[in-house]
């Protein structure tokens, strides 16, 4: 099977029903994408499929086809860079385990909407659980990053 991951063509012999997450982690060593639930409920494994956030634990490699997969290792958009800078400045992560998934959901959101209101943020981010409870800071961080992006885009 052949897949496009981070703009590289990947050949894999794994079974077709293998979730993308385990190709990424156990075969390609792309460890930033995390395992949290295996049922698409927690968002720790969020990657982009043609720019849309998807849960890689519940997406089989057979279902990917010609669509382009981007993990945080290959995500270099202005959105992710602004988000990462804010995440640093505002000390957002605690344990940090969920934060790559949070960033991938947030960057997909900001690509769609560079000025999201609170309800939009809630809708885009409620699929990503953080057990350390950093939600107040994540929300403030997304608003701050959106502001920076609007400045860049002007």
């Amino acid at each position: 099977m052949q897949l496009s991951i981070n703009d590289n063509i990947i050949h894999t012999e794994l079974e077709a029903d293998t979730p993308l997450l385990w190709l990424l982690r156990d075969e390609l060593g792309l460890n930033s994408t995390k395992f949290g639930c295996g049922m698409g409920l927690c968002g720790a494994c969020t990657v982009h499929l043609n720019g849309q956030p998807v849960r890689s634990c519940s997406l089989t490699i057979a279902a990917i086809g010609n669509n382009k997969i981007t993990t945080i290792e290959g995500e270099n958009s202005a959105q992710i860079q602004c988000l990462k800078a804010v995440w640093m400045q505002q000390n957002i992560p605690q344990c940090g385990y969920c934060q790559v998934g949070q960033l991938m959901s947030a960057s997909a959101l900001l690509k769609q909407n560079n000025n999201p209101d609170e309800a939009t943020i809630n809708a885009a981010m409620s699929g990503n659980i953080c057990r350390c409870g950093t939600y107040v800071r994540i929300k403030a961080g997304i608003i701050a990053a959106a502001k920076q992006i609007r400045v860049i885009e002007v």
Binding site: D26, G29, N31, S32, K34, F35, I72, E73, K84, W87, M88, N91, I92, P93, G96, Y97, Q99, V100, L103
Partner: peptide
Amino acid sequence: SMPRLDIADKLSGKAIFGIDQQLANMKI
């Protein structure tokens, strides 16, 4: 409020959690 020392690695993917440990010939 000194900035946290572990955040940069947690954003770059360099931070190794237990589940990220890799060894040659390791199985799951």
